[in-house]
């Protein structure tokens, strides 16, 4: 029997390297099911990642793939899209990859509204390097670099992407993979910069340091902290500190970067290169 998943993975790379219960595999499944729903040609899809446990996704999918350097997946993806706007370009990043070292690229990709889909696997920690806190680690939570609790305020990626100019912004969780797949599907199908943050679990680094010893404990926690937009709106500011709103937050139309670039080339050619 061949499953949907089997048709899109590099089977010889499995079982994958991720720890037992790691959310990266659940997100990978959601991405594949979303793409299968869209019936896209595998060879017209480019998946790009940086460095981190989450970034290893590009090794497992049978698309055109590029595993680049930490924080720089978006610049590489931008280059690919500009060179060949017909390709569907998906960028998978970790929370550290996207919002720490790659934070600048993230806001500018949104500002330009470049037609890419960014999927951020937010396990709220640097998983690969041993549990250092990231800009998405909640205040008060523990990391190897925050042994007494994180004193920083975290970014809200949904607000950040919205303010910076993205066209589509959504948040899902690994506890609810069906919703996550449908949000990813809409994001993939959207023209312009689309962002889906998936709240995920790293039982090994985050869980261990935050009193959640097993993958099951972590998923129960994620179930508890994720609330619908409607519930979120009724919460007090203090209650909001412990929760994440999930669902679709933004879906708007604005000319994307490749279209505007094409226009300016046409204009320059009409003027014979003389301004």
């Amino acid at each position: 029997m061949k499953t949907v998943i089997d048709s899109y993975i590099r089977e010889e790379m499995f079982p994958h390297i991720w720890c037992p219960g790691c959310g990266n595999g659940i997100v990978l499944g959601a991405i594949i099911r979303a793409i299968d729903d869209l019936k896209w040609d595998k060879d017209k899809i480019v998946a790009v990642s940086g460095i981190g446990c989450s970034s290893r996704i590009t090794g497992y999918v049978d698309f055109c793939t590029m595993n680049t350097i930490h924080g720089r997946a978006l610049p590489f993806a931008t280059g690919i899209k500009m060179a060949n706007p017909d390709l569907k370009v998906i960028v998978v990043m970790g929370d550290g990859d996207c919002s720490a070292i790659g934070g600048n690229h993230f806001i500018h990709a949104a500002r330009r509204n470049i037609d890419l889909t960014a999927i951020i696997i937010n396990n709220m920690i640097y998983g690969m390097t041993g549990g250092q806190y990231s800009p998405l680690t909640p205040t008060g939570k523990f990391g190897s670099t925050a042994p007494y609790g994180n004193i920083d305020q975290s970014f809200d990626l949904v607000e950040l992407a919205t303010a910076a100019g993205a066209s589509y912004v959504a948040r899902g969780t690994v506890y609810n993979p069906r919703q996550s797949a449908s949000l990813i599907k809409k994001a993939l199908d959207k023209k312009g910069f689309s962002v889906v943050e998936i709240i995920s679990d790293c039982p090994v680094s985050y869980g261990k340091m935050n009193k959640m010893k097993s993958p099951v404990d972590m998923l129960k926690w994620i179930k508890d902290i994720a609330v619908s937009k409607k519930v979120w709106e009724g919460l007090s500011p203090d209650e909001k500190k412990e929760k994440y709103a999930v669902g679709e937050f933004l879906n708007k139309d604005r000319p994307d970067y490749t279209a505007r670039y094409k226009e300016i080339i046409k204009k320059a050619q009409e003027m014979g290169g003389n301004k």
Partner: peptide, 15 residues
């Protein structure tokens, strides 16, 4: 289908 969708390792399927 939830077991299948939540399995991080594509190790269980339901038909």
């Amino acid at each position: 289908g939830l077991c299948e969708l939540r399995c991080p390792d594509f190790a269980i399927t339901v038909e």
